[in-house]
Design a protein around this nucleic acid. Structure first.
Lengths: 335, 335
DNA sequence: CTGAAAGCGCTTACAG
DNA sequence: CTGAAAGCGCTTACAG
């Protein structure tokens, strides 16, 4: 049988209140008693029930994290950052893969509420912002990660996607490219749209244009991206500089180029986005716009915990800066 | 304020016992009352407290998963499989990255016990098997994933690592390679040792040998592996066939080969292990021994849940079969 | 078919 | 410095 606080109290000949105090390091207990009680707890392998504690007003010290797919390296790296900070602060995290389906999001949201998590981080796409409103009513702390939902009054940690797109454009321009294209995610992914926007605006400022048919869309998986890139790069007068809205798409483009007999970067330069582990593993390794994934995760946790501590309610908006990581998939234009 | 079962009961003019029954779909409640109560719960956004329920004898419907590092694609894919099956069965999972440190493992184990998770899956290395024994005493269901701990009486889901190594050897032999080497993980990683063993035994059976200095070790990160591979492949009369104990190491070898001006597979054939997403993204794509990662995760969850249901205590040992996935990094020996 | 009551394992004032 | 008691939000027999 599992030992309870009563067992410890009986064994020590004290009340459960006293035991509770030593567990929580509160109150004034004589050093001798405290040591004695600690010893008994160890001996009985006593693990106080966090569940009972939570029921009596303490937090659950558990956070929820919603992502589209934990097996995607970007979200896996994000999850690691979230977990690390949470652990440091004494929290554990339950991870939920939603596959970007609202129905799944909603079910997880309810589940996490029932389990009384202290806060939730949402890094998954949500079509209908409405499904978050019950949480807001219960005033459960929420932080959006790399997602914009202007209609909602919640904490938000994002990166400057426009700047990210601009960084890619500037690099390609510096390398002498003028025939440019972009491979973006479907239009409902707002961050992707912003990246495209930053990219295009930078081109325009420099006196170049981006033809509508040079903006292609594909799902975020490898084979969709490759298929679309095959079409784009297969045309005569294909672009010499291609900006992809995430690393997976860039890899699809890399594979398409190879299949078409195009050399990277000699014949086409390709730039990715995210700087996940994938970017360092391809050949050539990807030049890519790096998201500060670790900081995204840390800051999201911090926002939640601060709100839990201070009752500080005003939602914060944090915007982090992406950075260009130059590797080998983009080079000077030839000829 | 959050609605409780009392609020619902009062609103409906019934006792909390009745509300409890409709929540749990138990007992016989007149259809009319049931509908009425359901309606009230919806209207008040009532979410029953899983914490209170757990305190009164129900499960927490939460499982723990310990892995070395959730940002490693292998473990990320495993986590996804675990999560999927858990969700189907009504459980959520808290994920813990241990960096293979016993101290961290121990802290997480205690934490998960305090949170009263219903079971734990352990996919992380543990030096000192002792730290699991308190759990066994509490008879908390435990399943080891891809780890051997013969001294412990717990559920185990592994793959046949010896067969995996043999598969790699057979393939290389078929392609005509005779100068072979292996890049393995440090000797404390038992699965890696088994892979090497299967590899070597197959060579011996075929009449070849594997010189001790052709068995190299490196940590599982990219740069360590690359460094070691640089040494190995830099020698004259370097091996033409190299078996690496995981995909990351194989990628390190790929990069080393490239740096040395060796073509893959024309000058060196390289085989990896795991078949994570990384294997499909390199150039050339990796021929690798695939672990049935999804099934590993599913089976581990199933074992736990079965034990929770049936009180069926005998620890099960499940061994799954790896398979060779032929892509392009291994080819026929030239000359 | 439905309700009163005990109990799960804690924490938190409140006394003393 | 320490204990008695109430209460957190449920579930589970047990009556009726």
């Amino acid at each position: 049988m599992k030992a309870t606080i009563y067992d410890i109290a009986r064994e020590a000949g004290v009340s459960i209140a006293t035991v509770s105090q030593v567990i929580n390091g509160k109150g004034k207990i004589s050093e001798k008693r405290r040591a004695e009680i600690m010893e008994i707890m160890e001996r009985l392998h006593y693990q106080p029930s966090a569940i009972a504690a939570a029921l009596t007003g303490k937090q659950t010290y558990t956070l929820g994290l919603l992502v589209p797919d934990i097996s995607n390296p970007y979200f896996a790296e994000l999850a690691r950052a979230v977990e690390d900070r949470s652990r440091q602060l004494g929290y554990s995290v339950v991870i939920c893969s939603t596959d970007n389906k609202d129905e799944r999001v909603e079910r997880y949201l309810n589940l996490l509420q029932q389990k009384r998590v202290d806060g939730m981080m949402i890094g998954t796409g949500i079509d209908n912002a409405e499904i978050l409103s019950p949480l807001l009513q219960q005033s459960i702390p929420i932080a959006l990660i790399a997602r914009h939902m202007p209609s909602l009054s919640v904490h938000t940690v994002t990166i400057d996607d426009i700047l990210g797109g601009a960084l890619a454009a500037e690099h390609l321009l510096e390398l002498g490219h003028t025939r440019l294209a972009v491979l973006s995610e479907p239009s409902k992914v707002s961050s992707s749209q912003e990246r495209v926007r930053g990219f295009r605006e930078t081109l325009i400022k420099a006196g170049y244009t981006l033809e509508p048919n040079q903006i292609r869309e594909s799902a975020a998986d490898l084979s969709s991206a490759k298929k679309e890139a095959l079409l784009l790069l297969g045309e005569k007068d294909h672009p010499t500089g291609l900006f992809c809205c995430n690393d997976i798409q860039a890899i699809g483009a890399l594979q398409a180029a190879k299949e078409l007999g195009l050399r990277v970067p000699e014949d086409v330069s390709i730039i990715g986005f995210d700087n996940t582990i994938l970017a360092s593993v391809t050949s050539p390794p990807l030049t890519t716009v790096a998201q500060p994934i670790e900081e995204l995760g840390h800051r999201a946790v911090d926002l939640l915990i601060e709100e839990l501590k201070d009752e500080q309610k005003e939602p914060q908006k944090i915007v982090l800066k992406p950075e260009l990581v130059i590797r080998e998939s983009a080079g000077r234009v030839l000829g």
